[in-house]
Design a protein around this nucleic acid. Structure first.
Lengths: 226, 226
DNA sequence: TGTACATCAGTGAACGCGCGTTCACTGATGTAC
DNA sequence: TGTACATCAGTGAACGCGCGTTCACTGATGTAC
């Protein structure tokens, strides 16, 4: 009977502990913020020597990177599934609304994760390549709607085309720069609104951020897809 | 001859040293970010005992607060003067463009200050009352344009009215909630765009952020005031 | 104008704390023959 | 199947560093009579 289990007991234990370390780090993220996450505190919480963490993550920065990637993917999952749940696939406006509202809901539910991804960069930390792909999931979801909506041709300028050539490639050059600009504008509005809200700039100004957001998002959907 | 100088030598020296401490703190802000500003490092830079700082600021948080207030006021000065420089006062669109572009220019020139004001809150630091007034200068500048533009009446809802009652009071209740929503949207777009740009989310997407921003701002001006 | 006292700025030592990372080592788990 | 060796996880001490804040004290500047 005692066959070797798939990839061995050691590997499985290792995966579990890796997950536990990330979970403890996440708890700290929530309590004290990304900049103050401490390997020693994590080790304390897990009842192990602080040096033991280094068997699982090469450095504090590596651990941070793992958290960032997980957070981007968590947000990506939430957004994609909200968008996918819209039954009428031809209703691009509703799909846009689903995306926007799910981003805000996730952000409000996970303010520290949101700050980790969209707040000030952690000083001294440079995000490595591996974070790029997960980070693009949300903008790609928005962009896809524009692509699906197709294009009414509009006046543009060489300068603007050049400025947006990166985005244009993503779409296989199917969209004009003014249309891409609209996309960037909406992208900025959604994250700008949420950032202002979560970081305290709506104090005394916007009493019910959810209601106002819904209003704005509905308006944007109409402008973009009607 | 030796009359007492206005408010005495001691007071003047005190004001000078207070300014020097803030200057050193600002240098640190630029180099290592707000969270890592250290009283001891400031004292070192100024060649004084670290305890001496406490003759000028009651705590690290107090010093941070002073930096935040100064930064809000600096930005406020820049924005108000850019807006005031538009000769044709009736051209609300141009005044809006002046405001938006000057915010971005200031942010690009002072990314760490921008992060201090609009990035993630410094963990463990709660902004006191004194920061509120300086913080409102920019949103007030935007709002004033809307007030000056007056109002074409539009459909609204009780819920939205309630959600925006704070902003409405600022304007003496001269604007409808849908109009105020437009204001909030633009506010979010401007800061959202700048935040995405400065915090690295335009990598591989927007090659020339200035050009795209100008395009967006021109569009918003038209929508708001045409 | 001169003196006595109060205020204030700045010092230097100390408290009590935290951190990331390295290193030589032990003991358990896995692998090859 | 049993044994010998290699790999790996985890330990505990140590290095070298930093921090905010307090406190008793000195000496200079200001104030009141």
């Amino acid at each position: 009977m005692s066959k070797k289990p798939a990839q061995g007991v050691r590997a499985r234990v290792r995966a579990e502990l890796t997950a536990e370390i990330k979970a403890a780090a996440t708890r700290q993220l929530v309590e004290v913020g990304a900049a103050a996450i401490s390997l020693r505190a994590i080790a304390r919480e897990l009842g192990m020597a602080s040096s033991a963490i280094y068997r699982y993550f090469a450095s504090r920065d590596d651990l941070l990177t793992a958290l960032i990637i997980d957070a981007y993917n968590d947000l990506g999952d939430v957004v994609e599934s909200a968008e996918g749940a819209v039954a009428d696939r031809a209703d691009l406006g509703s799909r846009f609304v689903a995306i926007a509202l799910s981003i805000r809901t996730w952000a409000v539910d996970n303010p520290h994760h949101y700050a980790l991804l969209y707040g000030s960069p952690v000083p001294g930390y440079a995000a490595p390549q591996d974070t790029i792909d997960p980070a693009t999931r949300v903008p790609v979801a928005l962009l896809s709607l524009l692509v699906e909506a197709g294009e009414k041709q509009r006046r543009t300028s060489k300068k603007l085309d050049l400025a947006l050539s990166g985005l244009s490639e993503f779409t296989g050059n199917t969209l004009s720069s003014p249309r891409l600009s609209e996309g960037v504008e909406v992208w900025g509005t959604v994250f700008g609104y949420i950032t202002l809200e979560l970081f305290g700039h709506f104090e005394n100004a916007v009493a019910d951020p959810a209601v106002v957001f819904e209003t704005l998002v509905a308006g944007m959907a109409e402008r973009l897809f009607a």
